[in-house]
Write a protein that binds this DNA or RNA. Structure first.
Lengths: 362, 362
DNA sequence: CTCAGTGAATGGAACGTTTCAATTGGGTTG
DNA sequence: CAACCCAATTGAAACGTTCCATTCACTGAG
């Protein structure tokens, strides 16, 4: 059924080498011959065999992208950035979902290596990933996504410490003095850094982190976990007046559960998220969040990867770090007890569907 | 750098055939020998070459999944269903984003065919896709996703006509008599069917569709297009009291713009979406929507595909059709002029963060 | 002691390309 | 007219596997 170059060649009355040339070096073959070959291809419905091609060439036209959660709009936006750049450069992207699970991640990395992808873009599940080093050593370029890599490796990231800091600084400026961090495990670098930033913000304000910051550690960075965190918060953290969630999925899940429990946001509790996914702005209480340049992140990562893959000679490892910015919306209001020092967002933007413009402080 | 079976063989002191057997038929090789070979593999960091493997075998362990928009949570949920099933069956999934663009779709299909993927799952951009038939004819199984296929082909879908019907029936029962459809182009089968269902609902209610239904056709099924539709609506459709959006992304974009323009939902305008994506429930005005079993859809599709791929002999083409269900939330309220005949959702659920339970009519 | 039988390992053909050195057949030059 | 050159084409080796028909070394039966 599937016909090969041999069939095309004999139908067109040429040698297989010529067929190959039509495909890869059209300028080398006489227009008339080329036309004959192309006609034969058309007639037979010939589709070149990628496996054979890349077996011979030693490299494929595919890239691997491993993300923590395809369901999280943050990652799909990143993926789109990667895809657009790759597409333009003639590469296809294999999108893999590690689901925050180490073994799934390992399995996918294996598949990608077997496929001899041109390179791998990954947001690793665990902090240290020795296998990534091994993969590099075996010759597959790896670019770390959303994480500042160690030396000898490209990476693209957003300054998460700064992100955590501006989020918590914002809450402090609203008068909050009891802030709970809803965060993933410290083994995830982003989580650890956002937390560090939060602590730094408190210290810079001349306060004691031990008194100001409470913590809830969640096992996954999704809405379900956010809802669970809300339960814990409602039960055990009555003193808290503000919550900083390590991403928007957590924040949205938390918001939903708070709503169901009758907790007013931001009246009873202020909430700040992270990522600024598209849906954050549309939430029941529009979510204050720390925006990351998602699309650019993906694009930049793909660019680094392909540069390394296509010009290994003059490639220099780079660590791009983007800067996050705070987007203030209705979910973060002043602390109920100290409503004095505030020039924050309009309170009732939450309840009435009036115009709600995003405020991006310079 | 990358070592092959030959290297492993010579290091272990065996023939390449034996190495191959360790990999594919471990039971055929003496435990001692096997151990030696495995040690050699470990030492060399040997990763089998997938290209060579599938060149020889003629088939790969990859599946292609082509969706209209990775950014739409509907598709990521479907993708997750596909992925879980594929993973369990030992397959990897290449996720491609056609972006509702015919040429991107074509390009990806080409890549997938060249890679000799084991099969393709696709939500096609255009209604008739003759190339899909050609792909089938060349031997790659194709399963249509979210679309009832023609005969001689598997497909998995949700009854979109029914979905459109229950959505509009719901609006009619709330007293609405001027309903606007915000819909994608009729070339997309889902859009055409949802529209058909909407018309049927009106006819079944003994009303004249020409009088009841207005239409806004959008060029894409995303939030941006939804917002644009809202503008059009505000400007030109003053008589409309309800809107049925062909998916939730449109509805969310529309809701946002309506909010900015000061239009009250559901007071001034009722809104119903489609898909029931996770974020629909969390929207500023929780969105009434037609729920599709997304995950199951993906799973079922993958199952059909792999059945066809792995047992072509006794495979029978099937057309699975799932049933959608209406999820009523705050965004659909009674028509302001005829508030009498209503036992609908609580109005103020939109403004106050009280408990909002989903109502799923049997 | 021989011979079939068995389990384990071997070696080479084949998969469909790409690449490259070799060949062909005009056309140009001296 | 020989010598040469260039563009176009050819044919075969190589890529790293899998598959299969062989070979090999034993074992137990006759």
């Amino acid at each position: 059924m599937a016909s090969g170059m041999k069939d095309v060649a004999s139908l067109a009355g040429v040698a297989v080498g010529t067929v190959s040339n039509v495909l890869n070096h059209p300028d080398l073959v006489r227009p008339l011959t080329r036309a004959r070959v192309e006609a034969a291809m058309e007639e037979l419905g010939f589709i070149p065999n990628g496996s054979a091609r890349q077996l011979r060439a030693g490299r494929s036209r595919c890239l691997g992208l491993v993300v923590l959660d395809v369901t999280n709009p943050f990652f799909t936006e990143v993926a789109r950035g990667v895809e657009d750049y790759a597409q333009a450069a003639g590469y296809a992207v294999i999108l893999c979902n590690s689901d925050e699970a180490g073994d799934k991640e390992r399995r996918y990395l294996r598949v990608l290596e077997e496929q001899r992808v041109r390179g791998i873009l990954i947001t690793p599940v665990h902090g240290r990933a020795p296998e990534l080093r091994r993969i590099r050593d075996r010759g597959t370029p790896v670019v770390l996504l959303d994480r500042p890599g160690s030396a000898g490796q490209c990476s693209v990231a957003v300054d998460d410490r700064l992100g955590g800091e501006i989020a918590v600084t914002h809450l402090l400026s609203l008068g909050h003095r009891r802030i709970t961090l809803v965060n993933g495990p410290g083994t995830i670098r982003q989580c650890a850094d956002r937390r560090r930033g939060a602590f730094r913000a408190v210290e810079r304000a001349g306060l004691d982190p031990a008194e100001v910051i409470g913590e809830v550690i969640v096992p996954a960075m999704n809405a379900r976990a956010g809802a669970a965190a809300a339960d814990e918060l409602i039960g055990h953290q009555p003193a808290t007046t503000a919550v900083f969630c390590a991403n928007d999925m957590l924040a949205l899940g938390l918001l939903r559960r708070l709503g169901q429990a009758g907790v007013m946001v931001p009246g009873d509790l202020a909430v700040v998220g992270y990522d600024d996914i598209e849906f954050a702005a549309d939430a029941a209480v529009p979510l204050t969040s720390v925006r990351q340049p998602k699309y650019q992140l993906g694009r930049a990562a793909a660019e680094l990867l392909l540069d390394e893959a296509d010009r290994p000679a003059d490639h220099e490892h780079r660590r791009s770090v983007f800067t996050p910015e705070l987007v203030v919306r209705a979910s973060s209001g002043p602390c109920p007890d100290r409503a004095q020092d505030v020039s924050g967002p309009v309170q009732d933007a939450a309840a009435s569907p009036g115009p709600s413009r995003d405020l991006v402080p310079g």
